[in-house]
């Protein structure tokens, strides 16, 4: 009986996911598309929870649905509603359809055979056997910050690069009007709660679902809420420290790696008695970096005063042009 119930729930979830994916892609109205996309992200978080991936469920709910939604909504705020849509010629449309169906069939066949042939263990047993030596007991954190620490280091570099591009391209978006009193009051509870929860997730990541990414994203959402509802309070914060927080993750990660190289002969090769504390140090730094990166991404560009170098060179350039 319970098996049928599970099957029913699974099928409902899958149908909803497919429908929302289709709706997100089919609409030409940006606002609708973004709304469907946020709902899709939330349902995806449920799917992760169903497939025993609680770390991902947390990350998806905060990042996939929350922060991407905020970024997208801010980006389409000034769009025109009416969009001109050019229809593709039907021959091209059918070629695309045919290609997609062929690719999907091929992938379906591949996945089917892959699942049928393998014993389903792959690296799992090996990783789970090594987890006690990694310094943490949550296997996902062990993989992220110990076994495959290189990946995570490079990921932080990717995030930094993307945010540097955002900073280079545009000035910060104009701030919003202060929010209504109800939201203001709620915020005075919500922001401290978000900060505390983020600290909790960072700490608990060592032995239960959580970790630097989820904690960083929660901290970023606190900053985004402040920016939305209390622009004056947000402006009062000196934003310059965010520049330092932006690189502190990579800086700490690389210095720990180098330190380990001198002590233990391998880059990022932790000595097992210290690895727990080293992972916590790296994760704390990464949390701050990710929080400031996502908050800057939401600001949409550089705040006033961050471009002192650029303005001085560009004004010099203009002066040269005039003479």
């Amino acid at each position: 009986m319970t098996e049928w119930l599970w099957l029913f729930l699974d099928l409902t979830l899958i149908l909803l996911l497919l429908t929302l994916a289709w709706l997100t892609c089919a609409t030409h109205n940006n606002q609708k598309g973004v709304t469907y996309f946020i709902a899709f992200g939330l349902l995806l978080a449920l799917a992760w929870a169903r497939l025993k991936a609680p770390d991902l469920a947390l990350a998806e709910a905060v990042i996939g649905a929350g922060i991407s939604g905020a970024l997208l909504l801010a980006a389409i705020k000034h769009d025109d509603d009416a969009q001109s849509v050019n229809k593709l010629p039907s021959i091209k449309l059918w070629m695309v359809n045919l290609l997609t169906v062929a690719l999907a069939t091929l992938m379906g066949w591949g996945v089917w055979h892959g699942l049928e042939l393998s014993d389903g263990n792959r690296l799992a047993d090996q990783v789970l056997a090594q987890v006690p030596e990694s310094g943490v007991t949550n296997p996902v954190t062990a993989v992220l910050l110990n076994f495959r620490a290189y990946d995570t280091l490079l990921e932080l570099a990717v995030v930094l690069t993307a945010v540097l591009a955002v900073l280079t391209l545009n000035p910060m978006r104009k701030t919003y009007v202060p929010a209504e009193p109800i939201l203001q009051t709620m915020l005075s509870w919500l922001v401290p709660l978000l900060v505390v929860t983020s600290g909790y997730l960072l700490w608990v990541g060592a032995h239960a679902p959580g970790g630097a990414f989820q904690a960083g994203a929660l901290l970023a959402s606190a900053l985004i809420l402040l920016q939305l509802a209390q622009p004056t309070a947000y402006q009062a914060i000196n934003l310059n420290w965010m520049r330092f927080l932006l690189i502190v993750g990579i800086a700490v990660f690389v210095s720990v790696g180098l330190l380990m190289m001198f002590l233990n002969t391998a880059f990022l090769g932790y000595s097992s008695s210290w690895s727990g504390i080293l992972i916590l140090v790296i994760e704390t730094a990464a949390t701050f970096s990710i929080a400031s990166a996502l908050a800057i991404a939401y600001m949409g560009g550089r705040p006033d005063g961050w471009e002192t170098f650029e303005t001085s060179t560009s004004s010099g350039h203009q002066g040269g042009k005039h003479s």
């Binding site: 990350a59 996939g64 970024l71 792959r122 799992a124 993989v143 995570t152 955002v166 990414f213 996502l294």
Partner: peptide
């Protein structure tokens, strides 16, 4: 327990996807 390696990869992927999206929007 599910295989933690793909979980770590996808966690990385989610964060990279959101930063790529921020860059595309900029």
């Amino acid at each position: 327990i599910a295989d933690p390696v793909p979980h770590a990869l996808v966690l990385t992927g989610i964060v990279v996807a959101v930063s790529a999206m921020a860059m595309a929007l900029a």
